[in-house]
Amino acid sequence: MSNSSKAVVSFIVGAAVGVAVGYFLNSDKKDELVDRLKYQADKLKEKFNKKKEQFEAELDNELA
C-alpha cells in the first residue's frame, strides 16, 4: 500500500471515528456512554494499581 493510500485510509477512519463520537455525544445516550467509560477507566486504574503494587513488592523482595 502506498503512502497516499495509507493517508486516505487514515483520513476515512478518522472521519468515521469523529462522526461516531459526535453522534454519541449529541444523542440521548451520552450520559450512559460517559458512565460506561468512567466505569471502565476505574476498573483499568484498579488493575494498574494492583499490578504496580505487585511489581513494587517483588522488587522490594529482590532488593532485600
Rank of each mutant, 00 (worst) to 15 (best):
S2M: 01
N3W: 01
N3Y: 01
S5D: 10
K6C: 03
A7S: 12
A7F: 07
V8D: 11
V8A: 15
F11Y: 15
F11K: 14
I12Q: 01
V13C: 05
V13R: 04
V13M: 04
G14A: 01
A15P: 11
A15K: 14
A16P: 00
A16T: 09
V17H: 05
G18V: 00
G18I: 00
V19E: 05
V19F: 09
A20S: 08
G22A: 05
Y23V: 09
Y23A: 14
F24T: 09
F24L: 13
F24K: 12
L25T: 09
N26H: 03
S27W: 09
S27A: 03
S27P: 00
K29G: 06
K30N: 06
K30T: 08
K30H: 03
K30Q: 05
E32G: 11
E32F: 11
E32T: 10
E32Q: 10
L33I: 04
L33S: 03
V34E: 05
V34H: 07
V34N: 07
D35S: 15
R36H: 11
R36K: 15
L37I: 04
L37H: 07
L37F: 12
K38A: 05
K38S: 08
Y39C: 08
A41F: 14
D42W: 00
D42F: 00
K43R: 11
K43N: 13
L44F: 15
L44E: 11
L44V: 06
K45M: 07
K45N: 10
E46P: 06
E46N: 06
E46L: 07
K47T: 02
F48S: 01
F48P: 00
N49C: 04
N49G: 04
N49E: 15
K50W: 05
K50C: 04
K51T: 12
K52W: 07
K52F: 08
E53Q: 06
Q54S: 08
F55Y: 11
F55P: 00
E56N: 13
E56C: 01
E56T: 04
E56A: 11
E56R: 09
E58H: 08
E58L: 13
L59F: 10
L59M: 06
L59I: 08
D60K: 14
D60C: 04
N61G: 14
N61T: 07
N61S: 15
E62K: 15
E62H: 15
L63H: 09
L63K: 14
A64Y: 13
A64Q: 10
